[in-house]
Design a protein around this nucleic acid. Structure first.
Ligand SMILES: [Mn+2]
Ligand SMILES: [Mn+2]
Ligand SMILES: [Mn+2]
Ligand SMILES: [Mn+2]
Lengths: 159, 159
DNA sequence: TACAATATTTAGCTTCAGCTAAGAATCTGA
DNA sequence: TCAGATTCTTAGCTGAAGCTAAATATTGTA
């Protein structure tokens, strides 16, 4: 006989100081990456549904001023994620497209997971905008398993 | 006969500009609340397992300098969440305890949800530190349903 | 008690993300 | 074509969160 598989979650209430510090540093790192990820993802998404992507489009989408977008974009140009060209439409570099793709993958997966869990799609989309930057690959894999399981069940039931 | 219950998630790829802007503003609001929530939650947690809570304890836990903690704490004192008393242990006000309790509830629920989903407890704890600030009450409720369903199933199976 | 060690705060700096206002470039229509 | 409207960038500001180094307060011990 084995010991019981899962006595109700005996995770300690207070992690060690080292783990705590490490976790909070990870959050701060995620926050530093957040703007980069949101910007390249947004540029890639808008490029799919309209001909030009302009700083003014991003300003409208993010709900910030044009000047703010120009400043952020200049940093992304410096990081080699956007092509440089003043007064011109925004175009992602190869590197930018790669990050956009990874970001988009996470975004869609988190959102679809929440929807599969029963969350209203609009609320799922809203929550995802923040959550997406804080999910590890491991958690993302668990989300994917859940979504797959659900759709497999649907197919099975649908026969 | 009814229409199929869930054709594979027809959520539009690009939300309207208004929704987009609203969602990003919500994320920025959450980021402004984040330090407040983490600080009062940490003070409340440490108070449960040790006699004094000092700025140096918070500095160690958050992985930041003592000076940073002193500055943040002074703002929380100004917000009426921590009792004022230089060189003294940190004590939450009634208001501070209330926010700590709400924050703790969310933290534990998110963490236990991830664990219930099959995520390793240490990774769940780490991801939770960021995610907790971005989950709406609706999503939290869905998390709670899932956790309850799981533990109910376990009890049933365990007979 | 006095002095050294430790803990805490203050001073002064950096970087980041936001803003408004003003200037420069582009586009459009008479 | 060129004047006005629009779009984009620049300049210069604020506030938040972090840092180090120096000053100050507390504590513990000889
Ligand atoms: Mn986002
Ligand atoms: Mn966040
Ligand atoms: Mn947190
Ligand atoms: Mn927390």
């Amino acid at each position: 006989m084995e010991t019981k598989p899962h006595p109700p979650c005996p995770y300690p209430d207070v992690p060690s100081a080292e783990k705590h510090a490490h976790n909070f540093k990870r959050v701060r790192d995620a926050h530093r990456r957040e703007i980069v990820e949101d910007y390249v993802e947004m540029i890639a998404e808008l490029a799919r549904v309209q001909d030009d992507v302009r700083t003014s489009h991003l300003a409208e989408r993010f709900g910030v001023s044009n000047a703010t977008v120009t400043n952020r974009v200049q940093r992304l140009v410096g990081d080699g994620l956007i092509e440089d060209a003043p007064y011109q439409p925004l175009v992602l570099t190869e590197k930018g497209r790669t990050i956009a793709q990874e970001s988009r993958r996470r975004h869609v997966l988190v959102r679809d997971f929440l929807i599969a869990l029963g969350v209203d799609p609009d609320i799922a989309e809203a929550d995802t905008e923040g959550i997406e930057h804080h999910v590890s690959e491991e958690t993302l894999a668990a989300f994917a398993r859940f979504v797959d399981r659900g759709s497999a069940a649907t197919e099975t039931t649908a026969i």
